[in-house]
Design a protein around this nucleic acid. Structure first.
Lengths: 229, 229
DNA sequence: AACCGTATGATTGTTGACAATCTTATTTTG
DNA sequence: CAAAATAAGATTGTCAACAATCATACGGTT
């Protein structure tokens, strides 16, 4: 609680953006554990920022589902639950299928190239046993379909989910001390994404997500049992 | 048990919630036309509220896509565009299909009853030529699938889209002076939602959305041509 | 001893003033 | 006359003090 790794911010953009980023990182890397109460005065002191921008940043993370807010009472880092992770994965399955349906007939060389580049980055991170980077690169890989869809609403929705997904991956990594789910299942993902069988791609997404869900769900149910709320 | 049907305590006590609601209504009913610049000092005077809560409310609507923000420059009511409406409809199609896939095998009497009640409200509003209420009840009808899915992320995503959808419906109604799209297509929607053929329901959703899109798209392209931005 | 009401302290919500930044209009310069 | 530099005005971003609300602890009542 007291050793938060929240360094004062450098003023590149607006404070609320910097603060939101800092908070997001702190939640994802575990400095702010799920369920932690966020006291505005404490945080504003830690960040060297007034409560105004801090509150705006908190609102933003509330909308992303990383923070829960009860008016006049308090804001808390979102808790983990089996239901939440189930929702996240089932929803993400639909989202990513939609993304591939959108881009399938518009896949160009730029897409193919970025896909392979990203896969290389991911496998490199895995090889180096850099868990944190592995998680990031895996999310980046999956982001490509959304990015190339050109569908702004779809992209925004994905970005909103991404934070929570990142959090669950990190929790999983911390608990089991190995990289995120499915570290070697991405070769087939990329192979199918480059291929010509859309239905096979969609089926693979379902299977891919199902496997990821099973792994993370085990973790979360552990956490739920250990923390007596 | 069922005697204690007391729910309506809407704790909108915080100013930012009230302000957000007011702004949302003002945008939807056209008092704040698309593209209008929102000057904080003016709005805070108008609403009799300080700029703090107003800014938080604006942030909330930015996250819902009803307001666009450029740091240090200004916030504007979101503009209309063919691309935006296309995205909205295509995305909504996926969302609603997902919702029905989720609830299909869990549809209970409560669902069937609410569905028919809601259809009755909608047809009544249409009969009374109450355009504003017609739009609201149509959105309420479509909300049922999301509501009964119990899927929080899905519901949140739908709520985020609902505002923009409402705006487009209202613009359409204002331009053509008739109720929203597909005023008589909901009988089949409900009939299929009560029936046993999931695939027929999913197909109908696609068709339903496609028809709605065509109507609203015509309007929006008109607006785009008339307003030289 | 359990329950209800009350007082206290802490925290969120709100406000008006101040600083940083952008836009516009004006002036200067080639 | 056109274009760049600059100053004025307005607007957004930020801050620290004030008010409303809630959670906790305490004391009285049954």
């Amino acid at each position: 609680m007291s050793l938060l790794n929240l360094k004062p911010i450098h003023k590149n953009r607006t404070l609320r953006a910097n603060v939101a980023e800092q908070l997001k990182e702190a939640i994802i890397n575990g400095d702010l554990a799920p369920g932690t109460k966020l006291v505005e005065s404490q945080l504003s002191d830690l960040l060297g920022v007034s409560r105004g921008p801090l509150r705006e940043a908190i609102r933003q993370l509330v909308d992303q589902g990383l923070i829960e807010s009860i008016p006049y009472t308090g804001t808390y880092v979102a808790g983990v639950s089996v239901k939440a992770i189930q929702e996240l994965y089932s929803f993400r399955t639909e989202l990513e299928q939609f993304a591939f349906k959108l881009i399938w007939n518009n896949r160009d060389d730029a897409f193919r190239e970025e896909l392979q580049t990203q896969l290389a980055k991911l496998t490199a991170a895995i090889k180096n046993k850099d868990c944190e980077k592995t998680i990031f690169e895996e999310l980046e890989l999956h982001s490509l379909a959304y990015k190339f869809s050109g569908h702004e609403i779809l992209q925004d929705t994905w970005q909103r989910l991404r934070g929570r997904l990142h959090l669950y991956f990190s929790l999983h990594q911390k608990a089991h001390n190995r990289a995120g789910p499915l570290i070697n299942a991405h070769d087939k993902y990329v192979e199918l994404a480059l291929g010509d069988d859309l239905q096979a791609m969609l089926d693979h997404i379902i299977e891919h997500m199902q496997q990821g869900y099973v792994k993370v769900e085990m973790l979360v149910s552990d956490i739920e049992n250990n923390t007596s709320t």
